[in-house]
Structure formats: structure tokens, C-alpha cells
Design a binder for these strands. Sequence first.
DNA 1: TTTATAATTGACTAGAATGGTCAATTACAT
DNA 2: ATGTAATTGACCATTCTAGTCAATTATAAA
Lengths: 206, 206
Amino acid sequence: MNEAFEKIEIEKRDRIINCAFKEFSKYKFDKASTNNIVKEANISKGLLFYYFNNKEDLFEYLSEFCVNTILEEIKNNIDWNITDIFERVKQVVFLKIRITERYPYIFHFGKLLFDSESKDLIFKNRDLMELSSKIYSYNIDFTKFKEEVELKKAINIIRWTLEKYGEESSNRFKGIDKEIDYDALLEEINSYIEVLRIAFYKGEYL
Amino acid sequence: MNEAFEKIEIEKRDRIINCAFKEFSKYKFDKASTNNIVKEANISKGLLFYYFNNKEDLFEYLSEFCVNTILEEIKNNIDWNITDIFERVKQVVFLKIRITERYPYIFHFGKLLFDSESKDLIFKNRDLMELSSKIYSYNIDFTKFKEEVELKKAINIIRWTLEKYGEESSNRFKGIDKEIDYDALLEEINSYIEVLRIAFYKGEYL
DNA sequence: TTTATAATTGACTAGAATGGTCAATTACAT
DNA sequence: ATGTAATTGACCATTCTAGTCAATTATAAA
């Protein structure tokens, strides 16, 4: 089915994937238009259905591609020896940005998968959910946290802050085709992380 | 145009508004279906277009209704004398929940307006943006904050935490028709606020 | 009861968009 | 020169679209 798709030039492949990611995350499965995808990706209608049997297969492919790409990029590049949660989180942010540079809509699509009510999609996300919880727990030194704060809640706040920062930046750059200055973004994220460090760590760890 | 709509029974009016809010926030303007709206709202196709000239007018009406409803509920019920930011925020959360009980999709629709690229919609939101910034600044006693934390960032983190908590709960209840226990929700939000208070306030204000 | 007005219906358009097909063409190796 | 794989886009049946309108029902007034 997608043997043909797997061996085309990487640039073209990514272009198609990105257009499909965009269309699906904008309009969900039903209202997403294959016509739109091929137009945006600059390929013919026939070619898309030469690569994928039908719309559903395309979506299926994207789902796996999305999950696997994120999973592998993070699993292969994260340093699990680091025990400081903020350093851990910085790494993840860095890796996410790297993924986003190549696949700008991958996390939007991931959110779509995640928010979906369909049972089998949720199942697909189990690996991703496991990774997500591992990021915020595996080998982390929680003794650095103030004892008065509820750990779980503090961690949620950390996670939410990063997610919301990501969403708001992504919105800020929507429509504007000026190249995004990821270094500046990363720097600002770091300063947010510093605020969170002061907020949640005991004095001796600042 | 909407004189007819304004004077129908309130229950029916709210039903139509809510179905339209839902459809538009799910599929955006173009892909939202008036057929779907009338089916969900249990009214005839003709009636919807008797109330509103066309789809665009309906959307227009909803935009204003959305902004005005939120604006008024908050403006009329907030106590601007309270100077503690967390007490301020608690009030807002309470009011938002009250609005949500009546119009479950109003904030989803609001987000749609907010994220829109269309210039005139952004303009409509100016009042809402002004209110939003007033909530987190007017008459607030910022001296309670630790001096080491950057105020603006701390405030964003507070805002984001509440927004994300709202979104995640809203997702959690999606599909489930069991009645939502808003009191339990409010209590949990309070506990998050306590975490934030510890995080950002000087010791003497805890 | 009659009459006038307003509210409501749903079958009905004309046109657009949909996912998907396929014979024909091009590109590319051998 | 030949065979295979990649690519096109016109085409199709079907579904869906926003919007209309003559007919019906409900409401209120006289």
C-alpha cells in the first residue's frame, strides 16, 4: 500500500505529510478534504490515491507516523541520567522544537489524536502517554521540591506552562511567514523555567 | 433580522445558540453545517433562516452574543475591591463555570474567535482582551509576590494553569453525559490555586 | 367564530464539493 | 527499444451545501 510512498524523495514525502497533518488537524477526519491536500501539496489527485488506498488509510499512516516520529526522536535523544526535572524538561522542549521545524503541524495532529473519542486512536496513543508520564517521573529527584507543594499538581503546572507557551507562540506565528527564531523562543522558555524553579524548589537548590 | 429570534422562549433560544456554538467551534465557519445545527436543535431548516438571513448573520449574532455574555457576567459580578490576585482569579473561575453551565460551548467558540486570523473578529475581541488584562492587573496588590519572580511570567503561569485545567476537565467530560460535579471541580481548582500561592507569594502572605 | 398575523414546517432547489477511478502520459531504468 | 513505475487530471456518482417558499399551524385580536 504505502511501499510506493516510502521510497519517494524525502522532500516530497514530507511536503505531503505536512499538508495532510495541517488539513486533518484543522478540520478533523470527516471535514478534511483530500482535494485540498493535493492542491496544497502540489500533487495530482491520482497520485495521492496511488500512495494510499483511501482517506482512511492516509489517516492511519499519519497517525502511526506522528506517534513514531515523536516517540523515536525523544526516546533516542533524551538523557535519562539527568535527575533535575527542569533540565529534563528543557531537553524535551528542545527536541520538540526540532521536530516542529520539520513537521510544523505534527503536534496539532497529535492533539487531534489525543482528544479523539474513538477508542482505537486512544489505544494508539498509549505509548505516547507512557512516554509523557515517564518524562516527568523516571529518575527524577523529587526531593528538590518544597515539601509544602503537592508534587502532582506542581508537575501539572510545569507541563501546562510549557504546553500553553507552545500553543500561544504557535498562534503568534500563525499566518506570518517570517521565519521563526527558535533560539529566541528557547531562551524565553528557559526564563519561564527559571520562574518555575524558584516557585517549586527548596531554597538550597536555586 | 433577529427581532423574531430575540422574543422566542428562552429555552429554545438557548438550545439553538448552544447547538450553533458547538457546530461552529467543532468545524469552524466554512465546514460548519446549518443542516447539522437545525437537526441537533430540533428545529426546521426554514426556521433558522427565518431567524437569521444567512449563515454569516448567524455567526455574527453568535460572536456578539458570546462576547457580550462573558463580558457582562464578569463585569457585573466581579468585586474589583479585592486586591489579592488569587481571590480575584477564584471569582473569575466561579463566574466562568456559571456561564459554562448555561452555555457549554461558549468558551470554545470564544477561542475560535480569538484564534481567528480575520481582522474584524480580532477587533470584536478587543473588549474581551481588555477585560482579561484588567482581571490580572486592576487594583491587584503585587507586593505580595516574591521579588525574585518575574511578575508578568508568574501571571501568565497562573492564567495558563487555570485555562489548561479548564480544557483538560472539559475533555475529561466529553462524551460522558453524567452531570458534571462543579463543586468538586471548584474545590480542585482551589487546591491548584493554593499551590500557586505557595509558589509565588512571599512567606509572610501564606 | 372569524380574521389577520406570526411562527414553523420540510420538500425542494441549483450548485458545489466529496472521495475515488482510470485511461493516458511521462520518466526512468535496463 | 522496451518494460515498468510514477504521475496526471478529466471524470463520475454521490452526498452535502446554503438557502427558498408555498403550505400549514399556532396565536392573538375582534
